[in-house]
């Protein structure tokens, strides 16, 4: 009962959030200067041509009217057609979504692995020079934003020691047998590890650039939380039972220290997804973010709307997933 109420409330807030995002985006992109029709027509087009196209895309109506028409479509799963490519927005956006999801998830995995390793090493060697070095490293990682890490990585591993691809999602000359756009995932399923290696070679640097600041946050927060937990009585009690430092950290302290970190990681992960917009551009990675920038440049209004809504849906889903994880890991909530 309690659970159902929480769920319904959650659903309602999500709907309100998405509606708010839709309204804001819809109005803002129509108020800022720049006209999609002018971008489409060749120089020398007549006034009549402009008027005809404007009417075709419904841009001659008032903004609230346009919103109602668009909103009615969306409720039926029709997000309109892209002005530049004339294809349905939904197809375009869903086509690009897998690329961005794979990149974000890979970045998250790298961030958790790196940050977790830092936190555990720092806790194991607390008070030592290694811990101090980890703190300094985390500080540096945090004070440089992801796109600058991207540039640094391009210079290091793309130019200086070219071990990774610096552009695209996959080498264009390769024959791709995939039936979905989840290339990374499908390459594993089809046991095509040659393709897998090529895809990872493209994804690794953008994913790492996205991951570094998040890894630093996880490292710092989890280490802090672990160190506090290590002083608690139940950890001391485990020590008197004959357990060594590694066991005490991993099985007594870690499960409890993770909880406060988890919520923040969820919030930070949504920032990471936001970061894909610039990073994808930097690495010419064919994902949603790159498409978003093109859409803005071309004033492709329906496409911008579709992408923004999709990002909003992803953010809400991430937050929901974090809450579920938190409940699953915390026995107090699990048995409430």
């Amino acid at each position: 009962m309690q659970l159902l109420r929480t769920f319904l409330l959650r659903l309602a807030t999500t709907a309100v959030t998405l509606f708010g995002v839709a309204v804001i985006v819809f109005f803002v992109i129509r108020v800022v200067p720049g006209n999609p029709i002018a971008m489409m027509l060749p120089p020398g087009a007549t006034e009549a041509d402009v008027a005809q196209l404007t009417a075709l895309y419904g841009l001659d109506k008032s903004i609230p009217q346009q919103f109602l028409i668009w909103g009615a479509g969306v409720l039926q799963g029709d997000f309109g057609a892209s002005i530049t490519s004339r294809q349905p927005v939904l197809d375009l956006v869903l086509g690009r979504l897998p690329a961005t999801l794979e990149l974000s998830v890979m970045a998250l995995v790298i961030a958790v692995a790196l940050g977790g390793f830092m936190a555990l090493t720092g806790t194991r060697l607390r008070g030592s020079k290694t811990e101090a070095a980890i703190d300094v490293g985390n500080g540096v990682a945090l004070s440089v934003p992801d796109f600058l890490w991207g540039l640094v990585l391009i210079l290091l591993f793309g130019v200086l020691v070219p071990v990774f691809h610096i552009s695209g999602r996959v080498t264009p000359s390769l024959e791709l047998p995939f039936s979905t756009n989840f290339y990374l995932f499908e390459s594993v399923l089809r046991l095509r590890f040659d393709l897998w290696a090529d895809i990872v070679g493209h994804m690794f640097m953008p994913a790492l650039a996205l991951a570094i600041p998040l890894a630093a946050i996880i490292g710092q927060l989890l280490k802090q939380s672990l160190k506090e937990t290590m002083n608690l009585d139940y950890v001391t009690l485990a020590r008197t039972k004959g357990y060594g430092e590694n066991h005490v950290i991993l099985s007594e302290a870690l499960p409890n220290a993770i909880l406060p970190t988890l919520t923040l990681v969820g919030v930070q992960f949504t920032f990471l997804i936001g970061g894909t917009v610039i990073i994808e551009r930097l690495f010419s990675y064919e994902g949603l973010g790159n498409m978003a920038i093109d859409a803005v440049i071309n004033r492709d209004l329906p496409l911008i709307q579709g992408i923004v809504i999709l990002f909003a849906v992803i953010f809400t889903a991430v937050n929901l997933a974090v809450d579920l994880c938190y409940a699953a890991l915390n026995p107090r909530l699990r048995h409430a």
Binding site: L232, D233, Y234, L237, T240, P255, N256, L329, R332
Partner: peptide, 16 residues
């Protein structure tokens, strides 16, 4: 050896 700790509220691991 064994320890009987001072505060029973903090001496048991809450997640186990």
């Amino acid at each position: 050896c064994a320890l009987i700790p001072q505060d029973p509220l903090t001496a048991l691991n809450p997640s186990r």
